[in-house]
């Protein structure tokens, strides 16, 4: 059994990382968008591997479903004239490298600290504990979250609205 788990994990890792790199480096923007969706999918898979099926379901619904579509809408409404590949990247890319490399090192070190940890993934599903928490201890934040969504919706509409004379 576990060998399947490990193999599955390896597969998902390659998918995630590869797609992520693809998002940043892709030639066409639609490619980036779809690769992003693929990343989301792989991450959902990892959630399943961890035993958090409910979260995985939400991931698919929200990220792969809603957010990807949103991004694609955004892509659709902002066409750019074609340009050479080099101009895809900001002028500050070298400075960016300077800052990002240390972060990379850091995260590598942090990750390295956990190499001997025991297996992840607890027993049982996560639906019951999740539901108990959300509708129990975290009921209020849950309601606030819905207000937040409402506000975001209204805000987005206001921002994009054209002034009609």
């Amino acid at each position: 059994m576990d060998i399947f788990g490990a193999a599955f994990f390896a597969l998902l890792t390659i998918g995630t990382i590869g797609a992520g790199v693809g998002v940043v480096l892709a030639n066409r923007i639609t490619t980036s968008a779809l690769l992003m969706a693929f990343t989301f999918l792989n991450v959902a898979g990892m959630f399943v591997l961890l035993g958090a099926e409910t979260v995985a379901m939400f991931q698919v619904l929200i990220y792969v479903g809603a957010i990807t579509v949103l991004i694609l809408y955004g892509v659709m409404f902002t066409p750019q004239s074609p340009r050479p590949y080099g101009l895809f990247f900001q002028t500050q890319k070298y400075w960016a490298a300077l800052f990002v490399v240390p972060i990379a090192i850091f995260v590598a070190v942090v990750a390295f600290e956990f190499r001997d940890s025991a297996a992840a993934g607890g027993s049982g599903g996560d639906l019951v504990p999740l539901a108990t928490s959300i509708f129990g201890d975290f009921a209020f934040p849950f309601e606030v979250a819905s207000v937040l969504l409402l506000a975001a919706m209204v805000g987005a509409i206001v921002l994009v609205k054209r002034d009609e004379e």
Binding site: Q92, W95, F106, V109
Partner: peptide, 22 residues
């Protein structure tokens, strides 16, 4: 005025925090 630079500054700040925490 280049927004990217401002993002870079945020990341630099993040780096400082990471270093401190580390």
């Amino acid at each position: 005025g280049i927004v990217g630079n401002y993002a870079l500054t945020i990341v630099a700040g993040l780096l400082v925090i990471l270093v401190a925490y580390g």
